[in-house]
Amino acid sequence: MNIIEININGNAIKADAGQTILEVCRQNDIEILTMCHMDGISDVGACRLCLVQIEGSNKLMPACTTKVMPNMAITTTNERIKKYQKITTELLHAERNHTCAVCVANGHCELQDMTAKLEITHIRYPHLFPDCDMDTSHPWYIMDHNRCIMCTRCVRVCKEVEGAHNWDVMGRGHEVRIISDYHTPWGESETCTSCGKCLHACPVGAIWPKAISQGQLVKNPGMINDLVEKRKMNL
């Protein structure tokens, strides 16, 4: 442990040199909004909701992948950051098909919570409604690409925790899609173990068990980290 002193929002805080800004903030009850981050899996810095301002740098840095440095002065929220968080959330809404009233995850959705938290009342951008399909081929689960926000949490949990690497991302730009194996139906996957971790990892209503309808989906993303911790302990 190499303890260093940093400054967050004007308060002096002690931190371990190897920690990320996000870890330090969570330890000290300083709120950082995240979407693509999940405890227990690696970080990619893709959703850009955790951007913070660091004194001396004109670029905003993602809290999830930036490590703390001695005497770093961090501002976690200000008007500029809030404005960008709002736009990011609006863009996520506009990108595919997000209508809470008809969604299985209604009431248990991280995107919905984020929208409420940021006090967004309208989406100012035209909805793109791209041509996405629903994969119902798996005997137990459904993957609805219309509700996917491309956080890639399912991809990482499948690769890093389960070790199956059933999921990946195909294409690029706004045409990216989550795929199973060779873009083959999930039910025909040669790699999926049907463990269900991706269901819990998904922050929205894109992956859910077949027996569930509107608003019934409750997830437990925390179980992924518990699992990782338990494995480390090797009980």
Partner: peptide, 10 residues
């Protein structure tokens, strides 16, 4: 993994 090959190709 197949998904990795396919994602790279596309």
């Amino acid at each position: 993994p197949g998904s990795r090959v396919y994602s790279t190709v596309t």
